[in-house]
Structure formats: C-alpha cells, structure tokens
C-alpha cells in the first residue's frame, strides 16, 4: 500500500494520468446509470435496484450484436431501442402495480427483477467474463506509461453526445417538460391533463434506454459478467444519495468523482476494494446528511 502511494507521488507520477483517464471513463458509465436512477426516483418515486442489471444487459446485447459483426457504435441505437421496449414492458407488468404501494415494495420487486435478469443472462451467455474486441488501436502516451485505447475515447464521445441530447430533450420537448412537471407535482400534472401513467411508462423506458447506452459503453471499455450488475446498482444509489435528486449537474459530477475515487482506492489498496469504497462513500454521505439533518431537527428520508 505504501509502495503504491510511493509510485503515485514519487516513482511514476505519470500513473496519475492513467488513473484519472480511467476514472473519467468509468465515471461516465456511473453518471449515466445514476442519472437514469435519479430520473425514475424523482419522477415516479421508484428506487430501481435492477439498474445495474439493465446496464449489464445492455452490454450483453451489444456483445451479441458484436458477435454478429455489428460495431458497438452502430449497436448503440439498437440497444437503446430494445432496452426501452424492455423498460416499457417491465413498467406495464410490474412497476405500474407497485407504484402506489410503499417504497419497499418497488425496491423489492426490482430486486426480484434484478435476480431474474442476472439468471437469464447467466443462462444465455454463461458465467464467464466477456469482452468485446473492437479492433481499434491503442495510443501509447508518455513513453508507454499511459495507455489510451481509441475505443474508450470513442465511447466517451458517444456518451457526451447522448448526454447533450437527453438534456435538450428534457428541456425542449413537450414530453420532457411533462416529465419534469410530473416530477414536481404529480397531482397538479394530472389536473392539468397530463396522462401520468404514460409519463411513468415513458420515463421508465427512457431510463432503461439510458442504462442500455451505459451498458454499451461498459462492453466497449470494461468487462461483462452476469452478476456484476449489483455493484453498478449500489454505486448508482451512492451517487444519487450523495448528489441529491433533481440535481443533474451534481449527479454527473458525483459520478465522475466516484469513478476517480474508485480508481485511486483500487490502485492504492487493491482492486477488491472498489465496491467497498462505493459503499463507504454511501455510508459517509449518509452520516453527513444525518448530522446535517439533526442540526435542522430532521431525519434523512
């Protein structure tokens, strides 16, 4: 551990650049997943524990398409459409029936969905760790001490474009405005003639599509495994909890922040601490929010 610290500050400070780059890539995935979670949480008060499994599923669809010769960049829109359809179906058969119940019901129902998706992926793709070979070159920077694969840059660009599109959609389109209105006051929105059921269905489908996009990115820059979803779910929750609902810039910057924290703790302590570092961050945020709430004579809800 001390030796690893020494590398960072003394022996090869250039390693920092590698860590920061990797942190940004993984942070982009986390930011997407967390943004989708904040969306369904804020709009329809559903805490989706299958968030990470949506991401992994999106990745596996891209993986299956890649086996058929479809490049991930081309696969992105296909994955998003397929995932949106899945999200819509999940809403119709499941979420719609638990949305009025207490929050634990939706949490547990989505946890069941998470188990289901994990096992289906396990049956179809097997429990092995999978990667897509993009056949794109790697850039070697600073005398080979930093590796920058083109495919990672490409995926980051895709995500950036996607994020801009989503923001524009939420700001400008009628549907986006209706979603935001429903998030602020569901009853008022209904009074104004907004069909909230349709909004909910659309929001959930949109979330699934965003997760699918994150999954495509995972498949390009990282590895896929049927049971890795839970760690993405937990990290999405950590980010949303830290940033707060309805705080889009906060969610995105916290996503990148967590990506960096993970890369550094992973490097300094060892890779097996990555999920633990997210959980510790979640707990620290919760303790902080409790202390702040206590000063306001409130509790964290």
């Amino acid at each position: 551990m001390l030796f690893n610290l020494q590398i960072l500050f003394d022996i090869a400070p250039i390693t920092n650049i590698q860590l920061i780059l990797d942190g940004i890539f993984i942070g982009a995935v986390l930011a997407l997943g967390a943004y989708g979670l904040a969306l369904v949480w804020g709009v329809m008060n559903v805490k989706n524990l299958a968030q990470g499994d949506f991401i992994i599923l999106g990745g596996y669809i891209a993986f299956a398409l890649a086996r058929e010769g479809v490049h991930p960049v081309m696969a992105l829109p296909i994955v998003m459409v397929l995932m949106a359809m899945l999200g819509w179906m999940v809403y119709v058969f499941m979420i719609r029936r638990v949305i009025e119940q207490d929050m634990f019901t939706s949490l547990l129902a989505t946890f069941g969905l998470s188990l289901l998706l994990q096992q289906v992926m396990n049956l179809i793709f097997g429990p092995e760790v999978q990667v897509i070979d993009s056949h794109l070159p790697n850039y070697q920077l600073f005398n080979d001490s930093v590796t920058l694969p083109v495919v990672k840059l490409l995926s980051l660009g895709m995500v950036a474009v996607l994020a801009v599109l989503i923001v524009l959609f939420m700001r400008k389109s009628r549907m986006g405005q209706a979603i935001r209105a429903t998030a602020q006051d569901e009853r008022a929105a209904r009074v104004l003639g907004i069909n909230t059921d349709r909004i909910y269905a659309f929001t959930f489908a949109l979330n699934a599509a965003i997760c699918g996009a994150a999954g495509v990115m995972v498949s390009m820059i990282w590895v896929l495994q049927p049971f890795y979803g839970i760690s993405y779910s937990l990290r999405s929750f950590a980010i949303v909890t830290a940033a707060g609902l309805g705080n889009l810039p906060g969610v995105i910057s916290t996503g990148f922040g967590l990506g960096l924290i993970e890369q550094y703790t992973g490097f300094i302590l060892g890779a097996e601490y990555q999920v633990a570092s997210a959980v510790v961050m979640l707990l620290l945020v919760l303790v902080y929010r409790q202390r702040r709430a206590k000063r306001k004579r409130q509790v964290v809800r």
Binding site: L49, F104, L234, V275
Partner: peptide, 23 residues
C-alpha cells in the same frame, strides 16, 4: 449509522454493507 435513515436508504444501505462485507 443505519437507524438515522428511513425507508429505501436503510434497505439499500444494509444491502451495500452485506455486499461489501463479503468482498
């Protein structure tokens, strides 16, 4: 830590602790 939290935070926090504990 956990009992200052209500509802979903408690469920997810405990899930996170269990997952992290195994690792």
């Amino acid at each position: 830590i956990m009992f200052g939290l209500r509802g979903p935070y408690f469920a997810i926090g405990t899930l996170g602790i269990a997952t992290a504990a195994g690792q």
